[in-house]
Simulated scan of single mutants.
Amino acid sequence: MSITESPSHYDHLEQMSIRELLEGMNREDQTVPLAVAQAIPQIEAAVKAIVQKMKAGGRLFYIGAGTSGRLGIVDASECPPTFGVPHDLVIGIIAGGDQAIRKAVEFAEDDEQQAWKDLQAYDISPRDVVVGLSASGRTPYVVGGLREAKKSGITTICITCNPDTVLAKIAQYPIEVIVGPEFVTGSTRLKAGTAQKLVLNMISTATMIQLGHVRGNKMVDMQLANTKLIDRGCKIIMEELGLSYTEARNLLEQYGSVRKVIESFNE
């Protein structure tokens, strides 16, 4: 039996009080960052490979099913507003298509050929990188997609929560975060999902910093898509250039980008 499917350390959950349920889940959740820490050397190797490819003009793809697929889409969708990159630079693909983001599509994850078809729709090539997301490490949709990507000379990475899986054997850069049994047996949206989210945060953020989209510790390339972000941009400019809020706001409206404002003063 795989670790992600092994019995919970807790039993008779229906007899527990709400406080006992919450404390038990929280106790389990506290183990996740420690498991991620053990995988940092694997994550580092993967990020180095991604950065090399993206500096040469490549793209980053995430493929997954269910919770894993949704997490990939969340991470991909947050890169443009956070770092100002094009929407087609980091792409999340889920088994069953976009409708599966909100509602499970039955048996979509069982089609071993579909992920590669989905990737081909983006004219994927050896310039790109594919990250396969599967807590179990055996999801057919992800396994098939990663296998075909590797055959086509594309750099392959995986994030799993079981050791020595078929997916990890395919991936050139396997990332294995072993979080142990779930609080509710087999419910990998819990610890396994949290672990995958943490790793995806690390991958995309470290990559974007390496690509130059952060200055100091500020998101100078963020999209000014709402009042909160415009306000944040003004405050970054104030701090960087010693200007008043009104001056910063006027410059931001003039240049349309925090980076452009700062660079205009450093020319």
Rank of each mutant, 00 (worst) to 15 (best):
M1Y: 03
M1R: 09
S2K: 15
I3P: 03
T4I: 08
S8H: 13
H9V: 09
D11N: 11
I18E: 04
R19Q: 14
E23N: 14
E23G: 03
E23D: 15
G24A: 12
N26A: 10
T31G: 09
P33V: 12
L34Q: 05
L34C: 02
A35T: 00
V36A: 09
V36I: 11
A39V: 01
I40K: 01
P41N: 04
P41H: 01
I43C: 05
I43A: 03
E44N: 10
A45L: 15
K48H: 09
K48V: 00
Q52E: 15
K53W: 04
G58L: 14
F61R: 04
I63C: 01
G64C: 09
T67Q: 06
S68D: 05
G72Y: 00
V74D: 09
V74H: 04
V74P: 01
D75L: 06
A76V: 09
S77V: 08
E78Q: 07
E78A: 05
C79L: 07
P80V: 07
T82A: 09
G84Q: 13
D88R: 11
L89A: 13
G92S: 13
G92V: 12
I93C: 07
A95V: 15
G97E: 10
G97N: 08
Q99G: 07
Q99S: 13
A100L: 07
A104V: 14
F107K: 12
E109S: 06
D111G: 01
E112G: 00
A115Y: 07
D118L: 11
D118K: 11
A121K: 10
S125M: 10
P126R: 10
R127E: 15
D128P: 08
V129N: 02
L133I: 14
L133A: 08
A135W: 02
A135K: 01
P140C: 12
P140M: 10
K150N: 09
K151V: 08
I157V: 13
C158K: 02
C161N: 15
N162M: 02
P163D: 05
D164A: 10
T165M: 02
V166F: 03
L167D: 03
P174Y: 06
I175M: 03
I175N: 01
V179I: 08
G180Q: 08
G180N: 06
E182A: 10
F183Y: 15
F183C: 02
V184W: 06
R189T: 02
L190V: 03
K197C: 01
L200D: 08
N201L: 12
M202K: 04
I203G: 05
I203K: 02
S204F: 06
M208R: 05
M208A: 12
M208F: 13
I209F: 02
I209L: 13
G212A: 13
G216M: 13
N217S: 14
K218M: 14
K218P: 03
V220N: 05
L224P: 06
L224V: 07
T227P: 00
K228C: 12
I230Q: 15
D231V: 11
D231N: 14
E240W: 06
E240Y: 06
L243K: 14
T246R: 11
R249E: 15
N250R: 14
E253P: 05
Q254W: 04
R259E: 11
K260D: 11
F265I: 09
